[in-house]
Design a protein around this nucleic acid. Sequence first.
DNA 1: ATGGTCGGCAACCGA
Length: 271
Amino acid sequence: MRFTLTTWNINSVRLRIDLVAKFLKSARPDVLCLQETKCTDDAFPLKRFKRLGYEHVAINGQKGYHGVAIVSKLPFEASDVRTFCGKVDSRHISVSFGEKAGLHAPLVLHNFYVPAGGDIPDPALNPKFEHKLSFLDEMKACEPLHPKGADRHVLVGDLNVAPYENDVWSHRQLLNVVSHTPVECEKLLAVKDSGGWIDIARQRIPQTEKVYTWWSYRAADWTVGNRGRRLDHIWVSPALENAVSDFRITRDARSWERPSDHVPVTAALEV
DNA sequence: ATGGTCGGCAACCGA
């Protein structure tokens, strides 16, 4: 069975619901993981998703900030929410798929929105950067993010870190810019390695090739110089390493009308 | 070298 999923930081699901609909009508992933929905659960545009054929929805929203959701054509067995760093921020939601979705074995999907970390890359001066580093440390220590041998787990989201040299437009110029500083890159890779996760973008695209999923709003023309970063990730557990049959970044979405600064990232898994 | 733009929500905060 082919299982397709997309992760997309939508930067307000209510404002951009028409863009989401446009994407879903064309790409038709089984599952869409959203970050920065920026609304409470009762304000989430449920009906619109249901009309689009995404009847199964798990939401962890909050007013004005953050917020994550998983919308799906396939039914879940269960969903769960975790908190990090002793805050109530809505930055995680997970669901499990199984028999109801037609799967012969369970598949667990985690959707994360890691703190951006503010501007100053010094945890002593910037509490937001300190929060980001602590969040990554807690992810590393989080037992459910350590899949065992045959576990079929997927972790996606806006992880707000571009860990490798060619995940940013200029490694040299971004070394001291939050999202690509050595300390946070090391911590993100420690999360990945502690769970044995496989970063499927880099499984499928050579490390020598530039790959981006985000382009800043702070440029008159985002295409000039192609100054992007790879902040959005899809990781799979070792049991799914050979199950990945497709990976794509919908770069066009950055030029849609009133776009998010992030674009959809999609994978297909043979499960 | 610096500042540049968004969205939420109604003055700035977070990104």
